[in-house]
Design a protein around this nucleic acid. Structure first.
Ligand code: MN
Ligand code: MN
Ligand code: ZN
Ligand code: ZN
Lengths: 147, 147
DNA sequence: GGGCTTGTTTTGAATAACTCAAAATAACTG
DNA sequence: CAGTTATTTTGAGTTATTCAAAACAAGCCC
């Protein structure tokens, strides 16, 4: 009976193990990210505010930046959208974005099918990562636009 | 002896054929884009200003938006960068971005190697396009950071 | 070529999403 | 518990872009 969504202690540990001090706003931010994926700073802020009154938007930005730097969360920046943060980290998975409503979903990188991620002519660049973004219509938006 | 970089008449025709009125600032913007790829609005503005004095930044943004909508230019939005515009359009090619200096280069989509661009589980999304961004170090930045 | 209609540009202001900095505050260390 | 240093608050500033009203000008018609 001591487990809400994710034990606050577990969250605190993750933060500590990342080399960061454990604070109320940080625990709250990480908690929000455990429950919701691909969420923007503003929405994180609105979710955290009631949990830790007095939290500022700047703090949330700072926390998300610190988490990102520490590798606790991942930041993506799809076109036409503010930055989105997610807890799923370490695998470099990809994303589908709905051109209708902006909904974002994870797309697993099909291992074994990655040859196309080695560019034919990389112009002398030393490639580190490949980021794939698929654009299309989510089920809901497909239904909304019949034709 | 009537051809500078790209004949102004040719530029005007492209604009007209896209269904847009031909104006001085538009011809100038398109001319700049013919000469320089992956260029941001601000730099387009600074290149256009001496050619068409009195041009406003807002106009440049408007022109680039109109061109993009008309399919005359392509707009990309790599993370950590303002939007970039390029004339190369129609093929959906990809990009390498230097994590050191932000330099951008085209990467041809290796035709025949695109199976990975069909996501394994698209979560019901109806995929329209796949956008690939490679991140790495450009030759210059590789030289600058020996280790 | 001279109006007319409508699309464009200018001018002026506003916005979204962050970032910066100084002072106040609170975590961890010993 | 005190001290050191990281973090947050408070307040302001920035960048890239968008909105809107009024002035202007392209392309069409005669
Ligand atoms: Mn994801
Ligand atoms: Mn390109
Ligand atoms: Zn949708
Ligand atoms: Zn570079």
């Amino acid at each position: 009976m001591t487990t809400e969504r994710t034990d606050a202690t577990a969250l605190a540990d993750s933060i500590r193990h990342a080399g960061l001090r454990v604070t109320e706003p940080r625990v709250a931010v990480l908690g929000v990210l455990e429950n919701e994926s691909h969420i923007e700073a503003e929405r994180v802020f609105r979710a955290v505010l009631p949990l830790v009154p007095g939290t500022s938007v700047q703090a949330v930005h700072g926390i998300l930046a610190a988490f990102t730097q520490a590798g606790l969360v991942r930041r993506i920046e799809p076109a036409h959208s503010p930055a989105l943060y997610e807890r799923r980290v370490g695998d470099n998975h990809h994303h589908v974005v709905c051109t209708g409503c902006g909904a974002v979903e994870d797309v697993d990188c099909t291992v074994g099918h990655s040859p196309c991620l080695t560019p034919s002519s990389s112009g002398g660049f030393q490639i580190q990562t490949a980021e794939v973004t698929f654009w299309g219509l989510c089920p809901a938006c497909q239904a909304a636009v019949p034709a």
